[in-house]
Design a protein around this nucleic acid. Structure first.
Length: 452
RNA sequence: GCCCCUGUCGUCUAGCCCGGACUAGGACAUCGCCCUUUCAAGGCGGCAACACGGGUUCAAAUCCCGUCGGGGGCGCCA
């Protein structure tokens, strides 16, 4: 699909004139990070929406690295930002452009304005003179008409004394040079926009369309801080969040896909996205909703696709799973897939499968294991299980229930102590499935295990 | 201080542009019930909002004005 501005041409398929038109009207957006920090949620969301728009319209999504402040820029940050984008599923077209390599272009444009009397020297810097007494007006994609009196705008630095360009000037020169058609960015840039429009006018250029998305707030309504989820995208990965979930939440924080589509994938988002529906209201980041979305995406994901991620979590937690085959891990993941909100939680949930000295809940131990009666029953259960032909969940359950019946017990009074003995926890996956996976030997040892 | 953006359940939102079908719908969270060997998952249900004050109108969540609240900006940072 093409940009809405594209003239109606029924023969858009082939002719050379149309090819030029297509090129000219193709949506071109960009993400322009400054490599002076990590990729945080706010910038990730900005990148995401630009990308969604490009992919939805079949346009281009370009990358521009705003590294004009060389002392603060660091390639480590850049790498982390690019890694973060890739992880989220955001790809870009062509090679990134680096502002640090284009200083001569900015200076040339500034000298042009100087020569035209639209700018003046101030020491070694070049300043743009703003004509007072009028208003700059533009139609914001998300906010509608926005107008500002030029009296509110003071003369703007184009080139600093050290020869580097100011942010606003480099931004305009590059956006024009890259043929950017739409700029989606944070609300914090609203007041930059009139200044930039003035530059476009002075340079004799047509400004692109601007859209300013409200900033994401922390749960307390204040700016997203480290304390409240305002950490890098990388942190969320380490915490065990799926990129699908993070992207999903970021999308919901700026655009509403409809009641039927709250849980969606990037592909669905690309298909459904409509730039006209961007929210104009600032939204608070909601960790609960993120966790819920994460759980939903984990449940929907194929177990095989979870395997590598789970191994990463186990490895990061120092769990030794070298003795376990993928088949075993796959079954284990199946057992806990609907029980974790984050991948990291898997590690704690499944401790009893990886070590015999797993931790034991005190409450549960007192309630179920410290009783003489329970121990005796567990011993009996162990004997039954030992005699089993096949050690399957089905057979185990049968043995367990018939034992309970013979003893005149409720199955639960056998099951709860058994779960405690086998896993050290009062909650978890189905007892019989756990036992089958654990294997007869471990189960018998633990059931008979004198409660350490 | 000045300028700009913004205000529907605790949170994300639908509805607002094109007033009436809104006893304001959905989702997360929370509470209860069902299912059940536990915990989840799933199903069912409950609680819960049009910031406030004026207009306009037969009629306002929807249009207008003001107040208050929230956020952002006012760098030779980006």
């Amino acid at each position: 699909m093409l940009s809405p501005e594209l003239p109606n041409c029924p023969e858009l398929t082939g002719c050379a004139g149309c090819a030029i038109l297509v090129e000219k009207f193709m949506v071109t957006v960009r993400f322009a990070p400054s490599p002076t920090g990590y990729l945080h949620l706010g910038s990730a969301r900005t990148a995401l929406f630009n990308w969604l728009y490009a992919r939805h319209t079949g346009g281009r999504f370009l990358l521009r690295i705003e590294d004009t402040d060389r002392s603060r820029s660091d390639s480590r940050f850049l790498e982390e930002i690019l890694r973060g984008l890739r992880w989220l599923g955001i790809d870009w077209d062509g090679e990134p452009i680096y502002q640090s390599q284009r200083f001569s272009l900015y200076r040339e444009k500034a000298r042009m304005l100087l020569a035209q009397g639209k700018a003046y020297m101030d020491g070694r810097a070049i300043l743009f003179s703003v004509n007072k007494g009028r208003t700059v007006e533009y139609e914001d994609i998300v906010h509608g008409k926005i107008s500002v009196a030029t009296d509110e705008i003071k003369d703007q630095v184009l080139v600093k004394s050290d020869g580097s360009p100011s942010y606003n000037f480099a931004c305009v020169v590059d956006d024009a040079d890259m043929a950017i058609t739409h700029i989606l960015r944070g609300d914090d840039h609203i007041s930059n926009t009139p200044k930039q429009i003035l530059f476009y006018e002075a340079l004799g250029l047509e400004p692109p369309r601007f859209g300013h998305m409200p900033l994401i707030l922390g749960p307390d309504g204040a700016k997203l801080s480290k304390r409240h989820g305002g950490v890098s995208v990388e942190e969320y990965r380490k915490e065990g969040f799926l990129p699908e979930a993070l992207v999903n939440h970021l999308i919901l924080l700026g655009w509403y896909p409809g009641e039927e589509h709250e849980i969606l994938t990037l592909e669905e988002a690309v298909r459904l996205f409509d730039i006209a529906d961007l929210n104009a209201v600032q939204a608070k980041f909601d960790m609960q909703k993120l966790r819920w979305l994460n759980a939903e995406h984990i449940m929907r994901k194929k177990t095989e696709d979870l395997l590598t991620l789970i191994k990463e979590q186990l490895g990061a937690a120092g769990v030794d799973f070298s003795g376990m085959g993928d088949d075993y891990l796959l079954k284990l993941i199946d057992l806990y897939k609907v029980r974790m909100k984050t991948l990291r939680e898997f590690v704690g949930l499944t401790e009893c499968f990886f070590r015999d000295d797993f931790s034991v809940e005190e409450e549960g131990r007192k309630k179920y294991l410290d009783k003489q009666e329970s121990r005796k029953n567990l011993g009996l259960l162990a004997d039954r299980l030992e005699a089993l032909q096949e050690f399957t969940a089905r057979a185990i359950e049968e043995a367990c229930r018939s034992l309970a019946e013979e003893k005149g017990l409720k199955p639960a009074s056998l099951i709860h102590p058994a779960r405690m003995a086998v896993s050290g926890r009062t909650s978890g996956a189905g007892l019989f499935e756990m036992m089958e996976l654990l294997g007869r030997e471990k189960v018998l040892t633990r059931l008979r295990g004198a409660w350490r």
